[in-house]
Amino acid sequence: MYIIVGLGNPGKRYDGTRHNVGFDTIDLLAHRNNLKVNKLKHKALYGEGFWSGEKIILAKPQTFMNLSGESVRDMVEFYKIDTEKLIVIYDDIDLEAGVLRIRHKGSAGTHNGMKSIIYQLQEDDFPRVRIGIGKPAFANLASYVTGGFSKEEIPIMRETVTKAALAVEAIVKEGIDKAMNQYNTKKDPEKETKDQ
């Protein structure tokens, strides 16, 4: 069984923003696999299904980003899964827009949602799919991550979210190492060694 969590902020105000690419990936996974993410429990919207003989939970925490860990901890404890069966999808300002990075484990970096999850679980040993959104040159960081993408970025990010969804499916069906080989973006982002 896998719990697949996409991070974001609930509400129409945040639809299509940089911080919500995790939610966008969950929505695409639900669409691709004919699942509805419309039940409310564990402080999350979630849906259930089966891929390749594995039970799958797709979840979008509704706690707002900085408290994402409360929802994730509730799900992990309720379903009694090992954290290696938890996959978290989230935006990363330390990767260029459009860069995809899959990792077995690692630090939270600068991401408050991941900080909350690691704090609540008291471990960082779980797979994650990081979607690069780039870093602002001058803008306020909070305004940047809760803002939308530029016209030029939209097709790049749409493609990257699609790759992120395919990568998650590959992790479940073929294992994380194969998924990393296939979907990790080849070009080196600026801070590749940040959390290896």
Rank of each mutant, 00 (worst) to 15 (best):
V5C: 02
V5F: 03
G6R: 07
L7I: 08
L7A: 08
L7V: 07
G8T: 08
N9W: 13
K12S: 13
R13F: 14
R13C: 06
Y14S: 04
T17H: 07
R18H: 12
G22K: 13
F23N: 05
D24E: 15
I26V: 14
D27Y: 14
D27E: 15
L28T: 11
L28Q: 11
R32H: 14
N33E: 02
L35C: 08
V37H: 05
N38C: 11
K39R: 13
K39C: 01
K41M: 07
A44I: 07
A44Q: 02
G47K: 00
G49N: 11
G49I: 11
W51P: 00
S52Q: 12
K55H: 13
I56M: 12
L58K: 12
P61A: 08
P61F: 14
T63K: 00
T63P: 01
T63S: 00
F64N: 07
M65G: 03
S68Y: 13
S68V: 10
G69E: 01
G69F: 02
G69V: 05
E70C: 03
E70S: 08
R73H: 04
D74H: 05
D74V: 02
M75Y: 06
M75N: 04
F78P: 00
F78N: 02
F78R: 01
Y79F: 15
Y79W: 14
D82V: 08
D82F: 05
K85Y: 11
I87V: 14
I87A: 04
V88F: 10
V88E: 15
V88T: 13
V88K: 14
I89D: 02
I89N: 03
Y90V: 09
Y90G: 04
Y90I: 10
Y90D: 06
D92T: 06
D92L: 00
D94C: 00
D94M: 01
L95D: 00
L95W: 04
L95V: 01
E96Q: 11
S107K: 09
G109I: 03
H111K: 05
M114N: 00
I118A: 07
Y119A: 12
D125I: 03
R128I: 06
R128D: 11
G132L: 05
I133N: 04
F138K: 06
F138T: 07
A139D: 13
A142N: 08
Y144T: 10
V145M: 01
F149E: 02
F149A: 01
P155H: 00
P155E: 02
I156P: 00
M157H: 03
M157E: 03
E159K: 11
T162I: 12
K163S: 14
A165V: 05
A167T: 15
A167C: 12
A170N: 15
K173W: 11
E174L: 10
G175H: 09
D177Y: 09
D177K: 11
K178F: 10
K178L: 06
A179G: 07
M180A: 01
N181W: 15
N181D: 13
Q182K: 12
Q182W: 14
N184S: 11
N184M: 13
N184D: 12
K186N: 10
P189D: 02
E192C: 04
E192P: 03
D195T: 13
Q196T: 14
